[in-house]
């Protein structure tokens, strides 16, 4: 019926003629890049980012005069769209990892690449470089349009600092995306991780406003109001908030806070992904 286990002429090992380089991070990066560009949601999220930043920015540029730029940067018009567009960056960050868990693809991925840290590193790198590039391009298109259209004498003096600030702003949004990816890796559910990220962005201003009314914790409330995401981003794009809260924290300290939070979450994601059952 079936051949017995003692078939004599059957080879006992198999060697493939395929070339077999030893896989390294470069292979993981190529793989993650293919994953990113071969799904529709990348197009949707990044398309939404470009459209809101450039669309709203251009509208603002067309409705302003040279004189308006006396008190704001040429990059400020990009801020309004980016306030909305940052959500797209965070969604893409979450989906980069949570979609693999939703489909079960993560098992296939980790079978092909059992070095989970390498896979995760490749995801962080591919995502952050892509997110930063697209954000920066959209922002600078708007900034350059503003400086070309309204660069007259009435706009006053403008320095290179505002461009650096905008670059830092793009980095800030990218960090939010990286934080979203890390939370996606920890939570493993798209909706859950996106909800957490929306909370991170929208809750602090509300919370700060509540706390500041309550005498005992008013200083904490003030601190939160000065350091939350929308405020930090506005500042990086040349919009100073009203001064009734006292001297605003520096751009550097705002970015540093996000770097620390993101760094800690990313570290946690490595620990969890490394030892969890998938």
């Amino acid at each position: 019926m079936t051949p017995t286990t003692t078939t004599p002429d059957r080879p006992r090992s198999y060697s493939s003629p395929l070339p077999s380089p030893r896989p390294h991070l470069g292979h993981a990066l190529a793989s993650e890049w293919t994953k990113l560009i071969s799904i529709r949601s990348t197009l949707w999220t990044l398309g939404a980012l470009v459209l809101t930043v450039v669309g709203v920015g251009m509208l603002f540029v067309s409705q302003t005069s040279d004189r308006d730029y006396e008190s704001i940067s040429f990059t400020t018009p990009a801020l309004f769209g980016l306030m909305v567009g940052q959500v797209a960056v965070m969604v893409l960050g979450v989906l980069t990892i949570s979609s693999e868990h939703a489909t079960g693809l993560v098992r296939t991925t980790f079978t092909a690449a059992p070095d989970r840290f390498r896979v995760l590193t490749a995801k962080y790198l591919v995502f952050s470089v892509t997110a930063f590039t697209v954000t920066a391009l959209s922002v600078f298109v708007v900034g350059i349009a503003a400086s070309l259209a309204h660069g007259g004498a009435a706009a006053g003096a403008h320095t290179a600092d505002e461009w650096l600030g905008a670059a830092a702003g793009c980095l800030y949004v990218t960090l939010l995306g990286v934080l979203a990816l890390a939370i996606g890796a920890l939570v493993r559910h798209s909706a859950g991780a996106i909800a957490v990220m929306l909370g991170v962005v929208t809750l602090p201003p509300v919370l700060g406003a509540m706390l500041i009314v309550w005498e005992a914790v008013a200083p904490i409330g003030r601190e939160i109001l000065q350091r939350n995401v929308p405020v930090a981003l506005s500042q990086l794009f040349g919009m100073q908030e009203g001064g009734d809260l006292g001297a605003a924290p520096s751009n550097f300290s705002n970015v540093l806070i996000l770097v620390l939070i993101t760094g800690a979450t990313v570290a946690a994601s490595y620990v969890m992904v490394g030892r969890r059952d998938v």
Partner: peptide, 30 residues
């Protein structure tokens, strides 16, 4: 090159083409 496994046929990203689903895997191992 050592082990190929089929655990769950649904463990692919449905939004990707068959070719791209396999390409990601191939690239990760050179």
């Amino acid at each position: 090159k050592h082990v190929g496994a089929l655990l769950d046929a649904k463990a692919m990203h449905g939004g990707r083409s068959a070719y791209n689903n396999l390409l990601c895997l191939a690239q990760s191992n050179g």
